[in-house]
Design a binder for these strands. Sequence first.
RNA 1: GUCCCCGUCGUCUAGGGGUCUAGGACACCGGGUUUUCAUCUCGGCAGCAGGGGUUCGAAUCCCCUCGGGGAUGCCA
Length: 481
Amino acid sequence: MRVRFAPSPTGFLHIGNARTAICNYLVARKNNATLLLRIEDTDMERSSVESEVSILKDLKWLGIEWQEGPDAGGEYGPYRQSERFDIYREYSERLLREGNAYHCYCSQDELDAERKKSEAEKGFYVYSGKCRDLSDEQKGAFEAEGRKPTIRFRVPESEKVVVNDLIKGPVAFSSENIGGDFIIVRSDGVPVYNYIVIIDDTLMKVSHVIRGEDHLSNTPKQILIARALDLPVPEYAHIALVLGPDRAKLSKRHGITSVEMYRREGYLPEALFNYLAMLGWATESGEEILSVDDIVRELEISSLAKSAAVFDFQKLRWMNGMYIRNYPLDTITDLFLPYITEAGYDVSGMDRTTLETIVDLLRGYCEVLGDITQYLGLFLEDVVVPDEETDALMNEDESKQVVKAAYELIHSEITETNFCDDLIGKIKAATSLKGKKLFHPVRGMITGRLSGPELDKAMPLFGFDRCRARIEYMYKRYVQG
RNA sequence: GUCCCCGUCGUCUAGGGGUCUAGGACACCGGGUUUUCAUCUCGGCAGCAGGGGUUCGAAUCCCCUCGGGGAUGCCA
């Protein structure tokens, strides 16, 4: 069994394509099959090496491994379509020679006009087929005009094509609905996707084509080409599309849709992989947080959902948070570091154990890595300015009592040695406040915020000096006025 | 327009004739834990698109309607 992922390098790796890649990877792992990577770069204007590089990088980041490809080599290369034009040319000549394809001299402008007219009159367009049976004289005349022909595939009349899809089941098409003879080679000699995809799949011995459902409607074209060329047809599995919240195919306008952006936003590859793999599928137990090995064990290609799935950013965030909380502390600390630095914090002077203790305290508040900076300043800065809602709370009389008590305590019986254990207890005794009435003002006083890490664990890390400075600041601000 | 695919809580899904007064997860709401918030935990809200069949019995099978999506490019 051999499967493939065939991205076209015209931008970043898109979430939908990432899911297709993941599916292929999973199926390969499960069946001990080879996964090959093929770069479909026949759109010369839009393809770029930068895109190819970034797509490979994103795939690797997701943990996807392939055995053959432009970087990995392999015996069925080259693995870039732009390097295989000689191969395609032979097939084109054969198609021409055997009458299954013909030169079309219609210019782009003529075709555009035809299309426009037809769409205005009928609402749709089918190529007229006027170059189907050109005589040698007519061809010569066009050549003399300097026209460069395209090559069109001669679509057979009323031929049935059934795609035995592993997910959808048998899907029947008839050649008359294909929309006429389609172009397989552009006038500049570059072949188009629907033509060469089947050639490459058979030449590269791909046994199972697993790709997005948007390719299903074009599959009969590819099969017809295979028939004309006596090529074997692989098995197909068309996976349902990933949709945006408006139920249209997920695209740029829906926000962040590239893997690269998710990485930058602070998502973990395991979480994104896990989420994407679970889209359109579920385990028997209902368990959703799964390792790659778990998924490989349980996933069955035929049990993938037939219907499209809306991409749920919320659930991804939740899942990412789960991964952040369950990651080994040492590893997750390293992953947080760039986000800490980017936010302008310098923790280079801090010893590792303290850093990890802080990270462990704060990771529960994180859904993406960048969330770590939300409360980090509390451990690194002296005075914290209360936010709006804290300010409102601190202006209440009970809060002022707390601040006043704390201020008096740090100037009498509370010292560096006992502030962690006794400060809150003594404030409670002095004010007779308890529960929320006590803890909220204390939190506000020490952190300037109404929520955050557990105070009994955080205060030792803040240190006495810092807490004292904050209490004094709050005293001046709220008690003295 | 035509062809193709799809339709279970707001979202992802389980279910494939009786065990379904339809199960789980995210989100949302409420209780508990945390002498506060988050975490964690317990509970609640909420769905078989509609209509016809078939059957003793339909979320499950068939048909129609409606709805959504995809394809119909000298894009992939």
